[in-house]
Design a protein around this nucleic acid. Structure first.
Ligand SMILES: [Mn+2]
Ligand SMILES: [Mn+2]
Ligand SMILES: [Mn+2]
Ligand SMILES: [Mn+2]
Lengths: 217, 217
DNA sequence: ATTAATTTTTAGTCTTGTCTAAAAATTAAT
DNA sequence: ATTAATTTTTAGACAAGACTAAAAATTAAT
């Protein structure tokens, strides 16, 4: 059994591997974890000792199979709890991440599996992210195409958003953007890479930063 | 916001106050928390600094109003989660305590209140213990009369059991003892203070230790 | 190929929560 | 009222997880 801190590092390494490169550097981790690089070094040595990561001084780290499995179980719990909060306890999708950060560390595989069953084995969380099953397998990520990469006149459905800051979610709410929302791309402005879209017959301009955090299909 | 450890100390002080005396000694706490007395002293100083307990060297400690409120919120969460696990996730009452010990530390009052509402504002947890409301108020404890204090020919209903070890719960399960179970006292044996009772037409002898941990009305 | 900039690691410190061993205070027993 | 036993506190240490500052290794730039 790992500590919460160790679990958070594993999760961070996993998500950096997905977003970026195969191999994760100390600085990348330090930024993600909001700790200093020296703290990361300490932790990596510890996780390497316990064989959750492979780590060579100055060369960065990588999750072992054991580490990846562990990370996926944390992610599974995180996302299941997010579904629980939204579906059963009337939370908005903007409120759940913070609480799931706490709940993901509860240790009981029976709890996780019963929760999964209670929620009818959901495939995605409230932000469109896939939920790994008991064995760490999950269906293909629907969050592959960013809204920023669509073309004029495309008509798309929103399949996911970046799971993060409250301010961003409040903005989305104001724009009436949610999972399943239909959107048409009206125009793209090259000078700042913003896009003009129409939602529910209203037209809105989204900045590049925003359109990169929204996924469509 | 307090740490998990601080919260556990507050809870321990609260329950010792209920079981035993107004004032809680260092040794009592040390035994309850399974830490050494010297660790307790350290923690008491810290909690006193933050004004959750009043504490005088060598004189023991007592929760302040602030400390009592805080403890009741932890207890509220603990018991609500126990109800959730039993009512919604198919857990047995013997399995939930350990997990609730983790869940009680999740920090979100909205979560607690939504959970309360989702569970239809239960008044007691799976062991018959009362659940404090948002403001820390709870209805009178039904766990007042121990089975060991009943008389021959009494017909009583089980309203609670001590919430603790797994082995004890397994024994209860084997005896078909649960909340609401009707029991008749057939005989009492003074030499070892065991009692002979009938449950569902079966007769069982319960030791003194057991009959003191079962509450009836 | 050196030098400069960046990244990463080491060394040492701090806080939290625990421990052991020894000292001090309190309580119980003669 | 002393002495003895018990309880509680102090003093000092340790592990986890963070930090700062300095050293070492790597990478980039001349
Ligand atoms: Mn999240
Ligand atoms: Mn999510
Ligand atoms: Mn319990
Ligand atoms: Mn209980």
């Amino acid at each position: 059994m790992l500590t919460q801190s160790e679990e958070n590092y594993l999760k961070a390494i996993y998500s950096l591997t997905e977003e970026d490169s195969e191999i994760v550097s100390t600085n990348m981790l330090s930024e993600k974890m909001k700790t200093k690089p020296s703290s990361v070094t300490d932790m990596l040595r510890k996780l390497a000792d316990k064989s959750y990561v492979s780590y060579l001084k100055y060369q960065g780290c990588e999750l072992t199979d054991k580490g990846k499995d562990y990370a996926l179980q944390i992610i599974r719990k995180h996302r299941l709890w997010e579904v629980f909060l939204v579906d059963k306890l009337n939370f908005g999708w903007e409120e759940v991440h913070e609480i799931a950060e706490q709940l993901e560390h509860i240790k009981s595989s029976k709890l996780t599996d019963e929760l999964d069953s209670f929620l009818n084995f959901p495939k995605v969380d409230p932000h469109g992210d896939p939920i790994p099953d008991k064995n760490g397998n999950f269906s293909n990520n629907l969050k592959t195409k960013q809204l920023s990469l669509t073309n004029i006149n495309d008509e798309v459905v929103i399949t996911g958003v970046e799971d993060g800051s409250i301010e961003f979610f409040q903005f989305l709410k104001h724009c009436e953007i949610g999972l399943g929302t239909k959107v048409k791309i009206i125009a793209k402005y090259n000078f700042d890479q913003s896009v003009l879209i129409s939602i529910n017959k209203k037209e809105i301009i989204l900045s590049k930063q925003v359109s990169q955090k929204i996924y469509v299909q």
